[in-house]
């Protein structure tokens, strides 16, 4: 297998003798639904509410030889939020919180990546939510990658970050302090283009 790959790689590189080592572009596999954008927020400090944004799209660029040049962009349809409770979802999307009719899209655009170890790193980027853009950092891990059984090539990552809702002008002052922040968890596979 390794031999075969090496031969393939060598023959491709011999065809492109002048090509520089370039980061490959990937599209997040939303169609096959190997991608999730989830949030986790405390409920009164007693347990957690879990939910996800079901509709989003994105792409990234990744080169294992030059991870520092990695980048990722994700656009999220805010009104696709689902926490398995229609009335709560409606309330979260209302003007009281996310105001999805005024701010229908949340975006993340990376600005930098710093490796912290084998397959690990810190991603920096601009997160826009509720019309407010902040620079955030996210701990990311390269989970795995390689040829898939259907003739494509995939790489998968996950990332976690904790964010304060007040930073996005979302008023949680009537809720206990533990509910004023949330965890964002993103996991996806990209298909190399």
């Amino acid at each position: 297998m390794f031999k075969k790959t090496m031969i393939a790689a060598l023959s491709v590189s011999s065809l492109l003798p002048l090509a520089q080592a370039q980061a490959a572009d990937y599209i997040i596999d939303k169609e096959g639904q190997h991608a999730f954008v989830q949030f986790k927020i405390s409920h009164l400090g007693f347990s957690y509410i879990l939910g996800s944004f079901e509709d989003f799209s994105g792409d990234f660029s990744y080169d294992p030889e030059d991870v520092a040049s990695s980048s990722v962009n994700v656009d999220v349809n805010v009104s696709s939020l689902n926490s398995n409770h229609a009335e709560r979802d409606k309330h979260i999307l209302s003007e009281d919180f996310l105001n999805a009719s005024e701010y229908p899209t949340a975006t993340f655009e990376s600005t930098g990546f710093e490796s912290t170890g084998e397959g690990e790193g810190t991603l920096t980027g601009e997160l826009t939510l509720h019309g407010v853009t902040n620079e955030i950092t996210m701990d990311v891990t390269h989970i795995g990658g390689g040829e898939d059984p259907w003739g494509g090539y995939r790489d998968g990552f996950e990332g976690t970050t904790n964010l304060a809702l007040a930073d996005y002008d979302i008023d949680m002052s009537k809720f206990p302090p533990v509910m004023q922040e949330f965890e964002l968890y993103v996991v996806f596979e990209g298909i190399r283009q």
Binding site: E87, K90, S101
Partner: peptide, 30 residues
């Protein structure tokens, strides 16, 4: 249609549950 947007029925006075029929439409509850 608000309360049944995610496919759960509506409990009527904990006496019976009115089942959801039309659910899962895009942005249905809002």
């Amino acid at each position: 249609l608000i309360s049944t947007a995610n496919g759960s029925g509506i409990s009527v006075f904990d006496w019976f549950t009115a089942p959801a029929t039309l659910s899962g439409l895009s942005n249905q509850a809002s």
